[in-house]
Every structure is written in C-alpha cells, then in structure tokens.
Amino acid sequence: MRRSLSLLASRLAIPLAIPLALALGTASASATVLNFDDLGADGYVPVNYGGLDWSGSSWFQYAGEQAPFAAHSGNRRATLGWDGSSDSSAIRFNAASSFTGAWFAGYDGVSVTIDLYSGNTLVASTATLNLSDSPVFLASNYAGLVDRLVFRSNDPANFVMDDLTFASAVPEPGAAVLTLAGLGLVAFVARRRRPV
C-alpha cells in the first residue's frame, strides 16, 4: 500500500509541477494610473510619459481650478486643447497592455468615446460618455491587449482626462526567476524518478 502511494505520488509530481511552475512564473500585472500630478510646469504631456508614447498627440496637461474641468484626483489633468482632434489624440503603449479606462469631465453636451487598437485593427470602442463638471469613469470593457488609444469627441477642446489606468503585459522581472525555479523543481523530480 505504501509503495503504491509512493508510486502514485511520483507519477503525479511532474503533471502537477508543470502547472505550478507556470502559475508561479505568470506575472500578476499591476495597474498603472497616470494622474499627471508628477509632472511639473503646465505644458504638453512629455513624449515618453508613464510607459506610453505621446509623441503623435497634442495632449496638454495643467493644474489649477477651472470649472467645469475638474480633476478626478490631485490637481493636474490632461486635455487635447484647441488643436485637438481624433487625428492628434492617439496615445501609443510602449508594450501591449490591457486598458482599463480613464476619468473625464467637461461641458454639458460634450461626449467622449475611446477606440482601442491592436496593430492597425480596431478591436473595441468604449461606450460614448456624456460629460459634466463632475468626473465620470469611462471603462474600456475590453479584456484583450491593445497598443493604441484614439479619442473621439464632438468638442475635443472642452473636456479633460485624469487617472488613465492600464496594465502592461510585460512580465515582472521576478517572474523569470520563479519560472526557472519551477522548471528546476520539475527536473529534480524527474531525475529522482529514474530507475538506477
């Protein structure tokens, strides 16, 4: 009985160790929230800010009270400004990411929609959000990975964005170490099972 339990345990070791190694090696992506409060003077959002590429956009960030353009958190927020349009609103991810959403405020009657792209393919669009002076969260409702956001509005100069939230798909550095440790465990168990 004892030998059969030992044999059963050794036969299950590898099939159980492999999923365990993969589970340990999988990175738990932590969310990044860009609130613009770490930026200094008012001005264009820096080209490489927060793991995103803003170089093809005209996003401007600023601080200070200005109704109805309320920040969701802190004091800073971003706007497309007077020259903003769908063409100049694109923000690119430096690595494919899952996009959660962002907070928006603006004049009554102004609406915002975000198109989500992977490569050159439109993979999803958010709902259309009608704005007010109280910030409202616009969720992506898309679980896949994207590499570009394009913002559409009926009046791009009259809304602000804050707390843009996403999670990068790039594994954390510790994930590789955990994966190697799991594979080492699998190799150790396999070696011990070999008959002498």
Rank of each mutant, 00 (worst) to 15 (best):
V33C: 04
L131Y: 07
S98A: 10
L180Y: 13
S134N: 12
N154W: 14
P68E: 06
L180D: 02
P19K: 02
Y142Q: 09
S10V: 14
G119C: 10
T26K: 07
D83A: 09
R194S: 12
G101Q: 12
S57D: 11
D133K: 11
Y117S: 05
S89P: 03
S58T: 15
Q66N: 15
G50K: 07
F159S: 07
N154T: 10
G43M: 06
S86M: 07
L185C: 12
G43D: 13
V110Y: 11
E65R: 09
S6T: 07
P171T: 02
A169I: 01
S10P: 00
W103S: 10
T165D: 10
D147K: 08
S10Q: 14
G119H: 00
G74N: 05
S111R: 09
F159K: 03
D163T: 04
I91N: 08
V189H: 08
I114V: 15
Y49D: 02
P68S: 08
G101N: 12
N154F: 12
N141M: 05
D83C: 00
N35E: 09
A102L: 13
D53M: 05
Q66T: 00
G106T: 12
D115Q: 14
L52R: 09
S73D: 14
I91D: 05
A127V: 07
G40N: 14
R193F: 07
F137A: 10
I14Y: 05
V150Q: 15
S97L: 06
N48Y: 09
V160W: 09
L5R: 14
V112I: 09
S88E: 05
P156L: 13
A63H: 12
F137N: 13
G50T: 01
F166Y: 15
L183D: 01
A127Q: 14
S86K: 13
R194G: 08
G81S: 08
A9S: 10
T126I: 03
A139L: 03
T179W: 05
S118G: 07
Y62E: 13
A102P: 03
A63G: 12
R194P: 00
A23Y: 10
A90W: 03
L12D: 06
A175Y: 01
V123A: 10
V110L: 06
A17R: 06
H72Y: 11
G81A: 01
R192Q: 15
G184E: 06
A70G: 01
L149C: 12
G174S: 12
